[in-house]
Amino acid sequence: MGTEQEHQPLQGHRTLAAIVFSDVVNYSGRMSHNEEHTLKLVQRDLELMTRFCEQYEGRVLKFTGDGLLMYFTSAVQAVACALEVQKTIAAIAANLPESDRLQHRIGIHLGDVFVSPTDVMGDGVNIAARLQSEAEPGGICLSQIVYDVVKKRLALQATYLGPRELKHIQESIPIYQIVLAAQSKTTNLKSELERTLTESAGVEVDDSIKQDLNPLSMDLPLLADDVKKALERLLVEAVGPIASVLFQQTLNQTDSRQDLIERLVAQLPDHLRNSFRSRADDLLKELGENPPPRSPPPPAIKEEAQPAASRGAIDLAFVKRCELELTKAIGPIAPLIIQRTLSQQPGLSRHQLVEALSSHLPNPRMSESFRRDLLTPS
């Protein structure tokens, strides 16, 4: 995947791009029924979509509250990504109760867009958004131009819906739809998903995703249920609401207590790792579980190499304040952005963290207000 620097020249320029829009089916209804749980589920699925977007060399340009606006230089990669997202979500849902399932609609269009420092605009974006609203729950709608580009590269089972009049779009757009049947809950789930992804998208399933989707791994008897819940609560204290997603994904990828703890530690910012490992060990002892052997601490020189101003500058209380203010501004994706920022840029000072987070806000006025609320002494 390209680096952020490689994407910078796009800003302020027009370019041809495959735009992918997603949203959650019945999001408002779910929020009115159980807001906290719905936000947790949205965070879970947006994390999965972001992961696939990066795997297929795309870029998340914007969070829309309950969905993503993604950019790809290749229409084939965009469609392959959308297929894998929908099939993976359906496969995971087969092992979940109804209350823990979300369905998503996806629209894809290939067109001219204008990328600014804070947004992406143009008919290409508008059409992709309208196509998303035309899709069936769990389905994908493609414009004619996208279908023509990918039909010889991917073995698609698409239905032609004919020209559609889309809101605020002057010309009718011929569209195709792919509706994916939900995966059944069987012991063959993993092999069936790999087969359908390979046949439909023409791509191999990433090894880490294979582990995530192994239905047998979801019930590994590594730890008693009360221990699992206690570890998850410990992780919530470190990284916030995204913890439940990280914990379940990590649990599905491991076959030993030692590996579970070390995988969790690896996903934390540097300044939280030793504390979490120590508390996890103490927790296992307290609840009657044998804690995994401790990994050797990092060399002391690594800690000394960090600037004194950045060591311990960000505590959990400040991270929670950032999470609260950012959620007010951009919605439930905020905890994910904070977690990724801290993981990718360990050792940030408070000022540096706030500056990094403010870049995700939609306009300069909101950015300035965000900085002022978090950095002005009370």
Rank of each mutant, 00 (worst) to 15 (best):
H7C: 07
H109S: 02
R105I: 01
E289K: 09
S22Y: 11
P296N: 13
V85D: 13
Q11C: 09
S217D: 14
K185A: 15
A181N: 11
N26L: 00
I108Q: 00
S116A: 11
V236T: 13
P297R: 03
L268K: 07
M121Y: 14
A158K: 11
D259E: 15
K62M: 03
A155D: 11
R350C: 07
Q306S: 00
R101F: 07
P174H: 00
A158W: 08
T254E: 06
R350F: 02
Y27V: 10
P215H: 04
D226P: 06
S22L: 04
L161H: 12
K62Y: 13
D226M: 07
P335T: 05
N214I: 07
S74E: 13
D281C: 06
V120H: 04
A313L: 05
V265K: 04
S133M: 01
L235Q: 06
R51N: 09
I333S: 01
S32W: 04
I333E: 01
N214K: 05
F276P: 12
Q253Y: 05
V319P: 01
I337K: 01
Q132V: 02
L46I: 08
T50G: 15
E262S: 03
G138A: 02
I169L: 03
V42T: 00
L264W: 09
S256M: 11
V245A: 09
D207I: 08
Q339V: 10
Q86A: 02
D259Q: 15
L131E: 03
A158L: 01
P221E: 02
H271W: 03
S217T: 11
D373E: 12
T3V: 09
I19P: 00
R372Y: 01
Q248T: 14
D373A: 02
E84G: 11
T186V: 10
E136K: 02
G240W: 05
M70I: 08
A94S: 15
I314T: 02
F370A: 07
K285N: 12
Y176L: 12
